[in-house]
Amino acid sequence: MAYFLAQSGNALSLGGIYALLALGLAVVYSILGLINFAHGALMTLAGYVLVFAAVLGLPFYLSAPLAILVVMASAVLLERIAFRPVRGASGATMLLTSFAVAVLLQLAFQLFISTRPQVVPLPDFLTATVDLGSFAIGVNRVISVVVAVVVLIALNLFLKRTVLGLAMRAAADDFNVTRLMGIRANRVIATAFALSGLLAAVAAVLWIAQRSSVDPMMGLVPVLKAFIATTLGGLGSLLGAVLGGLLLGAIEIYLAAYLPDAALPFHGAITLGVVILVLVVRPQGLVGASRELGK
């Protein structure tokens, strides 16, 4: 039972990170129809900001918000430079653009920083564990769950209570009609990218808090997982992204915990097998008929 609870903590922690990443993809996709594979490079960028901030002697409680701000600004800048010129183009064009951006950033990290992993110094409290009676869990995991919950609630309030948040949901429903409300299209799109940057950076900080290193490919795998999570939840649905992320995290952790040793090498394959099974039963994903926020 203690083992199960500890693994559940891990599942929530990993699922929370996937949920944040999937949400970052979904926010942009629901408005632009763009699956932004450069999202992973944004995660990696957050990691390098933490490294450089540590070199400059900044404490973690300052470097983490700094990483988030830098990544939000970079996401908005990426939209201006790379994605605005292909706005309204076919899905394939936008997808290729996002791959190109992802590769360019990854190469830049390799050329200008290093191909080797860089150590991210973490404060001691992150590596401690909390004793919960029958089992113990890492502080980093607890923080990860708490932060994910707080960010999800804040995002929900933003989308429901503020005019800009409403405009983003409206733009996902119908972009042109949103402009008829006198709302600047560019402002809505910039906000979507800023939000996706925020979500990528928060996820990156939580991810690094469990690994304490960053390399040029760091964001690749988690964002691929996040893409699987959005598909699992229902592409374009924000609620689906969160549920898909949590479910994928749970599948991965529980399989790793309970598979017999002989089957462990096939852990990844079995995980994807379960995902495919879900999609066979519900091709539209867990939530919604099509795109909850669009048509």
Binding site: L166, R169, A170, A172, D173, D174, N176, V177, T178, L180, E292, L293
Partner: peptide, 10 residues
């Protein structure tokens, strides 16, 4: 606009 185009999910 034609076809009303209210924001259905709002």
């Amino acid at each position: 606009p034609e076809g009303r185009h209210v924001f259905p999910s709002l």
